[in-house]
Design a protein around this nucleic acid. Structure first.
Length: 513
RNA sequence: CGGGGAGUGGCGCAGCCUGGUAGCGCAUCUGUUUUGGGAACAGAGGGUCGCAGGUUCGAAUCCUGUCUCCCCGACCA
C-alpha cells in the first residue's frame, strides 16, 4: 500500500481535521473569505450544492410545497415573540442598527449616529418568526390548510468556532415551513419531511443516515419535537445532516396563526419547520473523500464524466479533438440515474496527466484520457475514481473501445453511485457497537477506543428534566452526545444504562461535529 | 469567549531574537526540448511584509491596539 502515490499530502488516518481542510482546498470546493467564519464557495463546490438543491427541491415540490422568499432582515420585536426561540439564538445574532455611513474626522467611514434605526433588525438565523407573520395573514380558514412553503436562502449564526461547510457564520440552506389544522397532521408531516431528507441523503448523496427523534435537550429552540438524520463520518463522529421540527402551537401563538374551523370556531395552527444546509457538502466530503481527494457521488457531480484529450500543440490535435467531441456527444446522449449524463470535454491547455490529477482531487466519477494511440485503435483510456489504484499501487488505468465506453457509461455511473453508498453503509455498520449494558462499560469502551470509537447503541428509560441533565453531564465527560432515537429500532429488552430503570427505547450515542 | 500557534508575491515558507527599505521552493509567463503515473532546462514577471498607531535618522524586524486563520476548550438548531 505504501507504494501508492496519493494526490493529497495528508492522509485521513494521520490527521483527519487537516485532511478535511486539504480536501476542501485541493478539490477546489471553497476558500476563506477574510470575513470571520464566511467562505467563498468555488465553482466545483457550488456546482455540487446546485445539484443537491435541484434534487432536494424536486423532492420538496413532489410533497406539495411551493417556494417563497422572505426577507433577510427580521424586526427585533418580531423575533422576540417566542421566548425559547429567543433564548436559543440570542447569543449568536448579527444585528443591523444603522442605515448610513459618514466620514469621521479622520476620513474613516463610521455608522452615522443620525442614521440609527428606530428598531434594530436582526439578520435571520432561521425564519420561523417572520414566516409566522406571513402565515398569520395567509391562513384564515380551514380551507387554507395545510399551508406548505419552502425557501432557499442564506442565514447567519455568529458561531464561535467555524469550519468550512460544517459550521460557518453564514450558510446556505433550505427551510420549509408548514401550518396544519391539528397536531396529528403536523406531526405526520414532520416525519414525512424527515423521510424526504433520508431519501435524498441516501439516494442522491449516497450518504447512509439514521433517522430518529432528538432527545429533549437537543430540541430546536421553540420546538415540541425535533427529528434528525445522522450520518457517520469516516473518523467515527456523527454529523447531524438535517432536522425536522414539530413546533406545536408555540409559533402559532407567538405570531397569531389561527384559522376558522368548520364549526366557526377559532383554532391555532400546528406548525412545522425543517432544513438542510451546505453542511451536507461537509458530510459528502467526510463520507466519500479518500487520500486522493473527494469522490463525488454521480447523482450530485456537476460533471460525471470528464474527457481529457492529450494535446500536443501540433496539427494532429485537431483530429484528436474531433474524436473526443464524438465521444462527448455520444456520452451526452445517454441517461443515467434518471437524467442526461453530464460530460465535460476539458480542452483547457495543459498536460493531460496534470489535469487528470486535478480531476481526481475534485472527484469526478469517471475520467477519460484520450491520446493518439487510443484514437488510432478506436479506444479510450479511463479511470474509475472509485478504484483509482491497483493492488500493486499502480494507477488503475483501463482501456475500452470508444463505443463500449459510450454504451456502458450509464451502468458505470449507477454502479459508482451504489458502490459509494454500500461502502459507507458497510463502514457505518461495522462501527456501531451494540449490547453495552452499563455506564461503566460505556466509559470503558470509549476510554479504550480513542482512535475510532464509532457509535454506540444503548437502551435507556428516557429520563426528562433534571434526570436527563444528569445523563447529559455523564456523557459530556466522555465528550459524547445523544444523537437520536432511531425510528426503526428493535424492541428494548433490558434496563436503562444510566438510571437502571426498565428501558423504553434505544438511542445512539457518539462524538459529534 | 478562555488557552496556544500563525499572518511576508497565487500557494507553502525563511528572514524578526542582535532594526539598515525582502529571499527561497512551488505555481505563473516566454522559448527550446519533451510527452501515456503529476516533464526538463533557460530566461522573465509578480510582494513595500494582515491592518492602524507608536518608538527611531531608519521598522517585515521593537512596542500598543485591532482583524483574520488554525489547534484545544467552552458554546453549538
Amino acid at each position: 500500500m505504501s507504494n501508492i502515490r496519493h494526490a493529497l499530502s495528508v492522509k485521513r488516518e494521520d490527521d483527519f481535521a487537516a485532511w478535511y481542510q486539504a480536501v476542501v482546498s485541493e478539490a477546489d470546493l471553497a476558500e476563506e473569505s477574510g470575513v470571520r467564519g464566511c467562505m467563498v464557495i468555488k465553482p466545483w463546490g457550488y456546482g455540487i450544492w446546485e445539484r443537491i438543491q435541484r434534487l432536494m427541491d424536486d423532492r420538496i415540490k413532489a410533497t406539495g410545497h411551493e417556494n417563497c422568499y422572505f426577507p433577510i432582515f427580521i424586526p427585533l420585536s418580531n423575533f422576540e415573540r417566542e421566548a425559547d426561540h429567543v433564548e436559543g439564538f440570542a447569543k449568536e445574532m448579527a444585528v443591523v442598527t444603522h442605515h448610513r455611513l459618514i466620514a469621521d474626522n479622520d476620513g474613516k467611514l463610521i455608522p452615522d449616529p443620525e442614521a440609527k434605526l428606530e428598531e434594530p433588525l436582526v439578520v435571520r438565523p432561521t425564519s420561523e418568526t417572520i414566516i409566522g407573520d406571513a402565515m398569520s395573514r395567509w391562513v384564515q380558514s380551514w380551507r387554507d390548510l395545510p399551508l406548505l412553503t419552502n425557501q432557499w436562502a442564506n442565514v447567519v449564526r455568529w458561531e464561535m468556532r467555524t469550519r468550512m461547510f460544517l459550521r460557518t457564520s453564514e450558510f446556505l440552506w433550505q427551510e420549509g415551513h408548514t401550518a396544519h389544522a391539528d397536531a396529528a397532521e403536523a406531526k405526520e408531516h414532520t416525519k414525512r419531511m424527515l423521510e424526504v431528507y433520508r431519501a435524498c441523503a441516501e439516494d442522491d448523496l449516497a450518504m447512509p443516515v439514521i433517522a430518529g427523534e432528538k432527545p429533549e435537550n437537543e430540541r430546536f429552540p421553540g420546538a415540541v419535537e425535533t427529528w434528525s438524520i445522522e450520518a457517520m463520518m469516516q473518523d467515527g463522529k456523527a454529523l447531524q445532516a438535517g432536522t425536522s421540527h414539530y413546533l406545536g402551537t408555540n409559533f402559532a401563538e407567538a405570531s397569531n396563526i389561527r384559522y376558522q374551523d368548520k364549526d366557526g370556531g377559532q383554532q391555532l395552527c400546528h406548525t412545522t419547520s425543517w432544513g438542510v444546509s451546505t453542511r451536507l457538502i461537509g458530510g459528502v466530503i467526510m463520507t466519500h473523500g479518500d487520500d486522493d481527494g473527494l469522490r463525488v457521488p454521480p447523482a450530485i457531480a456537476p460533471w460525471q464524466v470528464v474527457i481529457l484529450p492529450m494535446l500536443r500543440d501540433k496539427p494532429e490535435d485537431e483530429a484528436l479533438l474531433a474524436y473526443c467531441e464524438e465521444l462527448r456527444a455520444g456520452i451526452a446522449g445517454k441517461s443515467a440515474l434518471g437524467e442526461k449524463v453530464r460530460v465535460l470535454l476539458d480542452k483547457k491547455p495543459g498536460k493531460a496527466a496534470a489535469k487528470r490529477w486535478d480531476w481526481v482531487r475534485k472527484g469526478a466519477p469517471v475520467i477519460i484520457e484520450v491520446g493518439g494511440r487510443d484514437m488510432d485503435n478506436g479506444c479510450v483510456s479511463w479511470i474509475r475514481r472509485n478504484e483509482l489504484h491497483r493492488p500493486d499501487g499502480k494507477l488503475n488505468s483501463l482501456v475500452t473501445s470508444r463505443d463500449s465506453m459510450i454504451d456502458g457509461i450509464a451502468a458505470e455511473l449507477e454502479r459508482t453511485q451504489n458502490e459509494l453508498f454500500k461502502e459507507a453503509e458497510d463502514r457505518r455498520e461495522a462501527n456501531i457497537t451494540r449490547g453495552i449494558g452499563s455506564m461503566d462499560a460505556l466509559t470503558a469502551f470509549y476510554t479504550e477506543n480513542t482512535k475510532f470509537p464509532g457509535w454506540v447503541e444503548v437502551q435507556w428509560s428516557k429520563p426528562t428534566g433534571d434526570a436527563l441533565e444528569k445523563v447529559v453531564e455523564q456523557l459530556k465527560a466522555l465528550k459524547l452526545t445523544i444523537r437520536n432515537v432511531p425510528v426503526d429500532a428493535d424492541p428494548v429488552d433490558g434496563n436503562c444504562i444510566f438510571t437502571g430503570e426498565p428501558a423504553v427505547e434505544r438511542i445512539f450515542v457518539a462524538k459529534a461535529y
